[in-house]
């Protein structure tokens, strides 16, 4: 069991994969962290349960002060969206209506934002 940045307990995986279980760390930044603290050779990384406590602490220190992750990042994102909505700009209106924000078509598709398709009454054949 290894706890990094609060509640995350990724183990049994290689370090650069395990770190991506943290919200806010993807493959790129995970590899950058490994490179910075000198774990792995850029191709092969040890598994989390093979790391010493010291190495884990170095990784923790690298993440804690320098990268916004987890709750803090989630708050930042939702604050940014809230700011857009309160301001009443176009992007905010799109967020409010649950429609795509970046100018995609909505005649068809856009199901990720709009949710499952709703049946239209009286539309058969």
């Amino acid at each position: 069991m290894a706890r990094i940045a609060g509640v995350n307990i990724p183990t049994n995986k290689r370090v650069h994969v395990a770190l991506t279980y943290i919200y806010g760390i993807g493959p790129t930044s995970a590899k950058k962290i490994c490179e910075k603290v000198g774990i792995g050779d850029g191709i092969n990384y040890p598994r989390v349960n093979e790391l010493t406590d010291d190495q884990l602490n170095v990784i923790r220190a690298e993440i804690d002060g320098k990268i916004t992750v987890e709750g803090e990042l989630r708050r930042e994102v939702s604050m940014n969206i809230k700011r857009l909505m309160d301001m009443g700009c176009y992007k905010g209106l799109r967020h409010r209506k649950g429609l795509p924000v970046h100018g995609q078509r909505t005649s068809t598709n856009a199901r990720t934002r709009k949710g499952p398709a709703k049946a239209i009454a009286g539309k058969k054949k």
Partner: peptide
């Protein structure tokens, strides 16, 4: 931001 963003 641009002015247009506030006048749909």
């Amino acid at each position: 931001h641009k002015f247009g963003e506030f006048a749909p």
